[in-house]
Simulated scan of single mutants.
Amino acid sequence: MKAVTWRSHRTLEVAEVPAPRIEAPTDVVIRVTATAVCGSDLHLYELLGAFIEPGDILGHEPMGIVTEVGSAVTRLSVGDRVVIPFPIACGACAMCLRGLHTQCETTQNRDHGMGASLFGYTSLYGSVPGGQAEFLRVPLADTTSIRIDGSLPDERYLFLSDIIPTAWQAVEYAAVEPGQTVIVLGLGPVGQLAARIARLRGARVLAIDPVADRRAMAERHGIDVFDRDRLDAVWEATGSRGADAVIDAVGTEASGNPFVKAAQVVTARLPTAIAKPVLEATGVDRLAAVHAAIDLVRRGGTVSLVGVYVGDADVLPLKTMFDKQLTLRMGQCNVQRWIDELMPIVEDPADPLGLDDLITHRGTLEDAPRLYELFQKKEDGCIKVVLYPQPSEAVA
């Protein structure tokens, strides 16, 4: 089968690889009908090569049709249409029962001190083949799948795999209430959806991004938008008190701090044997967005971190955070926890989240190298990419 594989820093290859098969009774195999490129995939493309092997299959936002079913699977049958959440979880351990599927005790990567295994996301998270491929093996499929009974197009359901629940959790963690003011930092796909969800919940939403195309998309959905160099205007828009909550949807590659950026670039190009211990012990993030969130939230407010951070040697302004009595919440999204709340919103004919206005670029698997580069460079208005392993299944 064809799959999008990582080869080296900023280099991908669409390669022929062995098709997956049932390896455990709890597995299913799906034929992938649509699969998206996530902002966190760009961290693999740019920074985290030390934890990937050449030939690893990328992608963690797929959906498709079940083609094979393991003998212990009880909730799925051949022919079922499914979305695949990015965390691989058992649904029965103490963490899953608490709704913390990304901490699943069955798939935790204890050798690395990390949480549940994830599709297509490095040796830190299990080296599980990803979903940017023609077929995908889904472990623990009764929990690691969302059966779709509705008849809407794939593009309405696909983002239940990651970015809709991720944005929803970010707003939940921000404790957003009607009438509050919320600031969203970063208007990539998750930031776009977090802003729309917060507005749907009755909040006034201010959003900051340096890219005009991203600001224009958010503005179409009733969001007040600001360029990154207008933080003073954002502060004034909160009555010079700060927002009730700030959602950081940027993450480790935030613009700012050229010295940290240079260190990240150099580390990404080091041989794996050298880069891996450096990243594990002394990795640092570009924290411009985190510092902006701490500055822009009001005293007693909440900062919700949804952008991916990977540093273990980051320095935070604890004095300021303590003095302002801030609440800080963060973490990988527990996708399965939110699906019952989200499915009616996704299937609402009124499209309250504006899902029909999110995808900017579509292509086949063969287009992946070019579209990754566009997405990483934020060129040609690229905000969200969807790939179709079978071009005939693409939505025009």
Rank of each mutant, 00 (worst) to 15 (best):
R110G: 02
W168P: 02
K378H: 15
G113M: 12
C382R: 13
G130L: 08
G39M: 01
T282Y: 15
V32Q: 10
A92F: 13
G70W: 04
L140N: 01
A34D: 03
N109V: 15
D41Q: 05
E280A: 12
D314I: 14
E155P: 00
L97F: 08
T35Y: 03
P153V: 14
L374D: 15
E134Q: 14
R298G: 04
T33Q: 12
W168F: 15
G363T: 04
T302C: 11
G188P: 02
V138N: 08
P391C: 02
V385A: 12
V32T: 14
A92Y: 08
G283E: 04
S240W: 06
Y388F: 09
G242F: 00
G191I: 02
G55W: 03
T106R: 12
G130A: 10
L296K: 00
P258N: 09
T360Q: 03
H43R: 09
I163C: 07
P165N: 02
G256P: 12
E134S: 11
G115C: 11
H101P: 05
A263F: 14
F226Q: 02
L206Q: 03
R110Y: 00
G131M: 06
G301C: 07
L44P: 05
L318P: 03
K384M: 07
A254T: 14
F322R: 13
S151D: 15
G242K: 09
S304N: 10
V386F: 03
R337T: 14
P369D: 12
H43V: 11
E53V: 11
R156Q: 07
A254V: 12
V176W: 12
D149R: 13
G131F: 06
A254I: 06
A174R: 06
G150Y: 01
L97G: 04
D149K: 10
E379Q: 15
I30Q: 02
C90H: 13
Y45K: 06
A368G: 07
E105F: 04
L97D: 04
I339V: 15
D232F: 00
R215K: 04
K378V: 09
D367A: 13
E341H: 13
V306P: 05
A175R: 14
L358F: 05
V211H: 12
P389F: 11
E393V: 00
M330Q: 09
R81F: 04
C38N: 03
A262R: 13
E280Q: 15
Y173D: 15
A133F: 14
P18L: 07
A273G: 10
A289C: 06
G64F: 04
P210I: 12
T102Y: 09
W6S: 01
K319A: 12
T67K: 05
V171P: 00
E105Y: 05
T122K: 00
V284Y: 01
T143R: 08
G381F: 10
D295A: 13
E347G: 00
R214H: 15
R329H: 11
D340V: 07
P20G: 06
R7G: 01
E236I: 01
L76P: 00
C96P: 02
P18S: 11
D312Y: 10
V290Q: 13
Q390Y: 10
G301R: 01
G202A: 09
D41F: 07
V28R: 06
L48F: 03
P178T: 11
A396R: 13
S127C: 05
R81M: 09
P54E: 15
V315F: 07
C333Q: 00
R228V: 14
E379I: 03
L358W: 01
